[in-house]
């Protein structure tokens, strides 16, 4: 593709459009983030009064202060978040892939009904499920146990994230069915087709799922708040809210510093994984 664009060198003004548009867009999109970065270096009373990006007095101490603000170092919260996020990624990628394959590729009775039910589970606002779910998980004995992350992870093992099932179904339906038919002629059953045709071609879907699972888990606040009750077991988003008690003490500077830091792992995770997304399918199956 690169060669194609370079073959068109003569059209100079047009080749400038893309970089200029990109830069403008980037500036627009990044400004709020730069503001956040700048603010993380402001002194507390300045944060509340100074709206410019640039701090008047540089306060890098927000970072060490934030890191050691609680009895438990902030690194611990990142680790906890990372643990929950990675397990969720693995669980989602496995369980949702299996379900998606069934929905997208296999014919079985009641498939349409189950698919509709699956989409239906996406539609109920989650806030009314929090209490019943909590009651249920508690009756399972999962709440307040020695490993409090059970209620946060087990549901993902069972493909309850319909979003990802649907995502993968849509991707799989983009894989030509002729491939299956060819494989069937070669004597493959549903399992072999899954293993040798669909799985390798599902990389973009899997990578997207991984990216989203990771990031959403990293940002999820409410469920983690409800199920985690031990300062040492808190995750980063829960810990971030500890900085500001709206009725009293607040540590705005450290909060901003840790917010910026908590973006770093997700950003790196994304930049690393999007490569897989880009290489995607072109190099694997189709071109042979």
């Amino acid at each position: 593709m690169v060669s194609r664009t370079s073959a068109r060198r003569p059209f100079k003004p047009r080749s400038l459009v893309r970089p200029v548009v990109l830069l403008l867009l980037t500036a627009l999109v990044l400004y709020p983030l730069l503001w956040m970065l700048g603010t993380s270096f402001k002194a507390p009373e300045e944060i509340l009064n100074n709206v410019s990006v640039w701090p008047q007095s540089w306060t890098p101490a927000n970072y060490p202060d934030g890191w050691t603000h609680f009895d438990v170092g902030f690194g611990r919260y990142f680790l906890n978040s990372f643990l929950v996020a990675v397990l969720t990624v693995v669980a989602n990628c496995t369980s949702c892939l299996l379900a998606a394959y069934a929905f997208a590729r296999l014919r079985f009775r009641l498939r349409g009904l189950w698919f509709a039910v699956m989409i239906g589970t996406l539609l109920l606002p989650s806030h009314v499920l929090i209490v019943p779910q909590f009651v249920m998980f508690r009756s399972f004995g999962w709440v307040g146990g020695p490993w409090p992350y059970l209620p946060l992870i087990v549901p993902h093992l069972l493909a309850t994230d319909a979003f990802f099932v649907f995502l993968m179904v849509q991707f799989m339906r983009g894989i030509p069915r002729e491939l299956d038919d060819a494989a069937k002629i070669d004597g493959c059953g549903a399992y072999s087709i899954f293993r040798y045709v669909v799985l390798p071609l599902s990389r973009p879907a899997l990578v997207s799922t991984a990216i989203f699972s990771f990031i959403w888990t990293w940002n999820d606040f409410f469920r983690q708040l409800v199920y985690l009750s031990d300062l040492e077991k808190y995750t980063a988003p829960v810990a971030l809210t500890l900085f500001i008690d709206s009725t009293g003490q607040s540590a705005v500077g450290p909060m901003f510093a840790m917010s910026v830091l908590s973006l770093a792992p997700v950003f790196l995770f994304f930049v690393a994984f999007q490569r897989l997304l880009v290489e995607g399918i072109n190099t694997t199956g189709l071109k042979g």
Partner: peptide, 21 residues
């Protein structure tokens, strides 16, 4: 002990109560 900021405190307390916890 469990402590958290004001945000979400009463949501959590209510949920715990609902679960008899």
């Amino acid at each position: 002990t469990t402590w958290q900021a004001n945000q979400g405190y009463f949501d959590k307390l209510a949920t715990l109560t609902a679960g008899d916890g």
